[in-house]
C-alpha cells in the first residue's frame, strides 16, 4: 500500500468536515474518492496534501509518516497534486511551465548559472513530457492561450515533471466538455498503465469514476461509508441511499 490514511479528522468550528477517515491505496492503481457535495472530499484531499493540518490521525506515504508535511516537501518526496481549477503559469510559455517543475525537482531552482548541457537536458525532458500529454506541438505557445482541455493536460504535465510516484487529482474532469473529459480520462489511464503511477482522484462524475477506478472510497458527512472495487460499490446499499437524490445512474 503506497498511501495509508488512518483516522484523519478535521473540524471547522462545530462541523466535523472529516471524521476518522481511513483507507489505503494500492501501488499503480487508480483510486477514486467520491461522495455527495459537502461529504468532506476536498477537505480530506487538503489534509493529505498538506494544504491544511489535521486535528488528529495520520497519513503515510510509502511507510513514511507525511502528516503535516509542507506541500513543497511532499512534492520532493514524490507526491504531486493537481487542482480543482486548472493551476498553471498562464503568462509563461508551455514548455517553461514544465521546465520550472523539472528544475524544482532537480533542486536547481535557485541556480544563477546554468550550463548549456543542463539547459538542454531540462528542455529535452520538458519536450518528452509534453509529448506524453499531446502538447509537444504547442510547446512555445503562451500557456494561457491553450484551450481548456489542453490547459488541464498541461497541469498534469507539470505534475508528471516532478516524477511523482503518486499523483492526487482534485476533480480533474470538472468544468470540461465531453470530449475534453475523454481526453483527460485516457490520460489518467495512461499514467497508470505506461508510467506505473498511482493516481488518487476526487471526482463528481460518478459514471467516469466507475469506468476508470480500480477501487473507490465513498464519503458522506465527513466519514468513509464504503471502500471497495467499483462493482461492489455499485451494489452497496449505503452508497445507494447516500446518492438517492444524486445522479447515481451508472
Amino acid at each position: 500500500m503506497i498511501l495509508k490514511v488512518e483516522g484523519l479528522s478535521k473540524s471547522f468550528g462545530g462541523l466535523k468536515a472529516v471524521n476518522d477517515a481511513r483507507f489505503a491505496v494500492a501501488e499503480a492503481s487508480i483510486h477514486s474518492i467520491i461522495g455527495p457535495n459537502g461529504a468532506g472530499k476536498t477537505t480530506l484531499f487538503n489534509l493529505i496534501t498538506g494544504a491544511i493540518p489535521p486535528d488528529s490521525g495520520t497519513a503515510t506515504f510509502d511507510n513514511v509518516d507525511i502528516t503535516r508535511w509542507t506541500p513543497d516537501r511532499l512534492a520532493r518526496a514524490g507526491l504531486a497534486r493537481t487542482f480543482q481549477r486548472t493551476s498553471i503559469f498562464k503568462e509563461l510559455p508551455v514548455d517553461e511551465n514544465v521546465a520550472l517543475a523539472i528544475r524544482a525537482r532537480e533542486g536547481i531552482s535557485r541556480a544563477v548559472w546554468q550550463s548549456r548541457g543542463d539547459a538542454q537536458m531540462v528542455a529535452a525532458e520538458a519536450r518528452d513530457i509534453l509529448a506524453r500529454v499531446g502538447l509537444d506541438s504547442r510547446a512555445n505557445a503562451k500557456a494561457g492561450d491553450l484551450a481548456h482541455g489542453f490547459q488541464r493536460a498541461l497541469d498534469i504535465a507539470i505534475g508528471l515533471a516532478l516524477k511523482p510516484r503518486l499523483i492526487l487529482m482534485d476533480e480533474p474532469l470538472a468544468g470540461m466538455s465531453r470530449g475534453d473529459r475523454e481526453t483527460v480520462a485516457s490520460l489518467i489511464t495512461m499514467l497508470r498503465d505506461t508510467l506505473g503511477l498511482t493516481v488518487v482522484v476526487v471526482e463528481h462524475d460518478v459514471g467516469m469514476v466507475m469506468r476508470l477506478s480500480d477501487r473507490i472510497t465513498v464519503m458522506q458527512h465527513g466519514a468513509v461509508i464504503a471502500d471497495a472495487p467499483p462493482d461492489e460499490i455499485r451494489d452497496n446499499a449505503a452508497v445507494r441511499s447516500a446518492y438517492l437524490h444524486g445522479s447515481f445512474a451508472a
Binding site: T70, D72, A75, F83, L100
Partner: peptide, 9 residues
C-alpha cells in the same frame, strides 16, 4: 500556490 506545490521554496 502552484509554485509551492511543484516544490519551489
Amino acid at each position: 500556490e502552484r509554485a509551492r506545490f511543484i516544490g519551489i521554496d
